[in-house]
Computed example of a mutant assay.
Amino acid sequence: MDEYLILLPDDEDAWERLSDDGREAVHSRHREFARRLQESGQVLTGGAELAPSRTA
């Protein structure tokens, strides 16, 4: 089985300015993406938000 890594880059400053509702909207789209992958027979084996780059 092939495996792929999916990276979803974004603007960290814009993310931090989002309201809780705005962040929930983004997370909802990610859940929808995962649901559609699963429906098509794909297996999503992980997922995590990276720490901000300023903490590197």
Results as ranks from 00 to 15, higher is better:
residue 2 D to L: 11
residue 2 D to I: 08
residue 2 D to N: 11
residue 2 D to V: 10
residue 5 L to K: 05
residue 7 L to K: 03
residue 8 L to R: 07
residue 10 D to H: 15
residue 10 D to M: 14
residue 11 D to S: 10
residue 11 D to Y: 01
residue 12 E to I: 05
residue 12 E to A: 12
residue 13 D to T: 09
residue 14 A to R: 06
residue 15 W to L: 11
residue 15 W to N: 04
residue 15 W to R: 03
residue 18 L to D: 08
residue 19 S to F: 06
residue 19 S to T: 15
residue 19 S to P: 00
residue 19 S to A: 06
residue 19 S to I: 05
residue 21 D to M: 03
residue 22 G to A: 05
residue 22 G to H: 04
residue 22 G to N: 09
residue 23 R to V: 06
residue 24 E to H: 10
residue 25 A to S: 12
residue 25 A to G: 03
residue 26 V to F: 06
residue 26 V to Y: 07
residue 27 H to L: 14
residue 27 H to M: 14
residue 28 S to Y: 08
residue 29 R to V: 07
residue 30 H to N: 13
residue 31 R to Y: 08
residue 32 E to A: 15
residue 33 F to A: 07
residue 34 A to C: 11
residue 34 A to E: 13
residue 35 R to D: 14
residue 35 R to C: 02
residue 35 R to A: 11
residue 35 R to W: 05
residue 36 R to N: 11
residue 37 L to W: 04
residue 38 Q to I: 12
residue 38 Q to C: 01
residue 39 E to S: 10
residue 39 E to G: 07
residue 40 S to G: 04
residue 41 G to S: 06
residue 42 Q to A: 15
residue 43 V to E: 03
residue 45 T to D: 02
residue 45 T to G: 06
residue 45 T to A: 03
residue 45 T to L: 09
residue 46 G to F: 02
residue 47 G to M: 04
residue 47 G to A: 07
residue 48 A to D: 07
residue 48 A to H: 10
residue 48 A to V: 09
residue 48 A to S: 12
residue 50 L to D: 03
residue 50 L to P: 00
residue 51 A to S: 12
residue 52 P to E: 06
residue 52 P to L: 08
residue 53 S to I: 06
residue 56 A to C: 09
residue 56 A to V: 13
residue 56 A to H: 09
